[in-house]
Design a protein around this nucleic acid. Structure first.
Lengths: 255, 255
DNA sequence: GGAGGTCGTTCCACTCAGCGGTACGCTCTT
DNA sequence: AAGAGCGTACCGCTGAGTGGAACGACCTCC
C-alpha cells in the first residue's frame, strides 16, 4: 500500500517501519535490504534519527528508541480510549483471569490498543499496537459485524488468507457468523487466528449504538470455554460504552 | 536542549513533539507557535506527516495518529521489559488493588513503561510513556539509590525544584533516604510528587545485582499505608528480576 | 456593515539539503 | 592472502524543501 519513498520524511519513516514487531535490532545492511533504499541514504538517515532520539545505536546496529515510545504513548492517550478503558479491562481480567484485549478497527484490520496478560496464560500472537485481520478474530468479527455494510462487504469479497487450518475462509460462513454475533451481542473465535486459543468478544457502543471498539477474552482450548465468559465480556463492554458515551465524541474515524 | 530544526526531519519531529501529553489536538497556528517554525513549513510538513499516517487531520487541526502509536509500541516491545513484566505487575495489582507502575531510569528522569489502574483509585500524575524527576518519586529514589555514584551525585547536586509542599529538596535528606532504601530494599514517597498519594517502590535487579528497572505501588493518603505493601512490591520486583536475568541482556543503557 | 483579526491555504523563485554513485578501511571467513 | 560483507567518508549535481508574500474564508467587535 502506501510508501512514498521519494522525500526525506518518507525515507525516514520507511526506516522506522522497517523494524517489525520482532526485529528488535537491525543492522545497516538489514535496513538497506528491507527498505530498498540506497545504502548511503539509509546510513545518513539512520544517523539523523539517532541524533533526534528516535533510534538508538547498538553494538550490532540500530534499535527503535525510547523517544519513539514516548511519542507513541502520547498518540495513544490522545485517542483517550486506552486510558478510559483500563479499569474495565482490569475488572474483566480479575473476573476471568484470562488474556483481555481492547481493539479498534482501522481500515480492514484490528488494532490492539491494550492487552492485559497474567502469569501462565495462553500464548496469543496479538500485541498492544499490533494488527490482525478482521475476519478470523473474535474482536475482528465484532468490529466487522457492527460496521457499515460497505466495510463488511469490502472485507468479505477480498481474499481471506487462512492463518490456521481452522480459519473460516468461506465468505458465506463468516457472514452468517457476523449475523449471529449481531443478535447475540458477542462473537466467538475458535483457533481461527492461532492454534490452541479461543476468544469471545463484545462491542463497545456509544449512546447511538455506534461502534467505538471491542473487548475480548482469550484463553487456551483446554480449560477455557468462551461461552462461559460471554456475559462478563458483554458487561465490561457495556460499562465502557456508557462511560465513553458520557464523555464527548471520540474521533469520527476516517479510514 | 536538543532541537536541530534546520533539516526536514528535525522540523517534522519538532512538530510531532509539539504535541505534549495533554494537547490532544493542535491547530496549524498552535503548531507554528510551539515550534517557532514558519507557517508555510509547518503546513507542508504537517501535510506530509498526515500523508504518512503519523498525524490525523481533525476538524480543528491535527492529532497524533495511530501509526505513531504502532511504532511506539514496537519501540516499547524492543525494550522487552514491558512484555515480560506484565504478569508480575498484574499479580501485584491483584494483591494490592492499587496503582502499579514499572519505571526505568533514562538520564535524570523516570520513564514509566507500564501502568496498571483499576476503578476508583488514587489520581496519579504519571502516565505510561511519561517522565518524572528521580528525587521525589518512590521509583525514582530506587532507581537513584541503585545507580552509580556518579548519577546519584549529578542528580543531588543539581537543583531539585519541589513539586509539592512535601517535596524533599535538601540533598542531604534525599541522600539519607537513598541509603535507607539501599539497606531496606524499598523506597517510599509521601506526597512529594503529588498531593494525596504515597508510594512504595522496589528495584528489579538482574543476577549481578545490576539495576534494570523499578516497580511501585501507589495509593491515596487515607486508607493506603505504603509500608503494608513493601513486601508485595519487593516480591514482584524479585520475581521479575529473576525472569529478566534468565533472558539475555537487556540493553546496556547509553545515557 | 465594514473594519480589523485570525486562520488555513496557495503561489513561486531561490538555494542548499539531500542525494546516491564511487571508493575506502575494517573485520571476519575461507 | 584473497575474498566477502559490512560500516563509513567523499563529493559534485539537482530538485525538494524553503519561507516570504498574498489570498480568501471565517470570525468578532465597534
Amino acid at each position: 500500500m502506501s510508501s512514498d519513498v521519494d522525500t526525506v520524511l518518507g525515507k525516514a519513516i520507511a526506516v522506522l517501519r522497517a523494524f517489525s514487531a520482532d526485529d528488535h535490532e537491525l543492522s545497516l545492511s538489514a535496513l538497506v535490504e528491507r527498505t530498498g533504499l540506497p545504502k548511503t541514504s539509509v546510513h545518513r538517515i539512520a544517523g539523523d534519527l539517532v541524533h533526534h532520539r528516535l533510534l538508538d545505536r547498538t553494538s550490532h546496529g540500530y534499535r527503535l528508541s525510547g523517544g519513539l515510545f514516548e511519542l507513541g504513548m502520547r498518540a495513544s492517550l490522545e485517542r483517550g480510549l486506552a486510558e478510559l478503558s483500563m479499569p474495565f479491562l482490569q475488572d474483566l481480567y480479575e473476573r476471568t483471569h484470562e488474556i483481555v484485549h481492547l481493539g479498534l478497527r482501522e481500515g480492514h484490520e484490528v488494532v490492539y490498543v491494550a492487552k492485559i496478560t497474567g502469569r501462565r496464560q495462553a500464548r496469543s500472537p496479538s500485541r498492544a499496537g499490533g494488527r490482525m485481520p478482521l475476519y478470523c478474530t473474535a474482536i475482528g468479527k465484532v468490529l466487522l459485524a457492527w460496521s457499515d455494510e460497505e466495510v463488511r462487504r469490502a472485507v468479505l469479497t477480498r481474499p481471506m488468507p487462512p492463518l490456521t487450518a481452522h480459519t473460516i475462509t468461506a465468505p458465506g460462513r463468516v457472514a452468517r457468523q457476523l449475523d449471529t454475533a449481531l443478535s447475540a451481542g458477542v462473537a466467538f473465535e475458535r483457533e481461527e487466528s492461532a492454534l490452541g486459543i479461543q476468544c469471545v468478544a463484545a462491542p463497545v457502543l456509544d449512546l447511538d449504538n455506534k461502534l467505538v471498539a471491542a473487548i475480548s477474552v482469550t484463553g487456551p482450548v483446554g480449560r477455557f470455554r468462551p461461552e462461559q465468559h460471554a456475559d462478563a465480556v458483554r458487561a465490561a463492554a457495556h460499562g465502557l460504552g456508557a462511560l465513553v458515551a458520557r464523555r464527548t465524541s471520540l474521533r469520527p474515524d476516517p479510514s
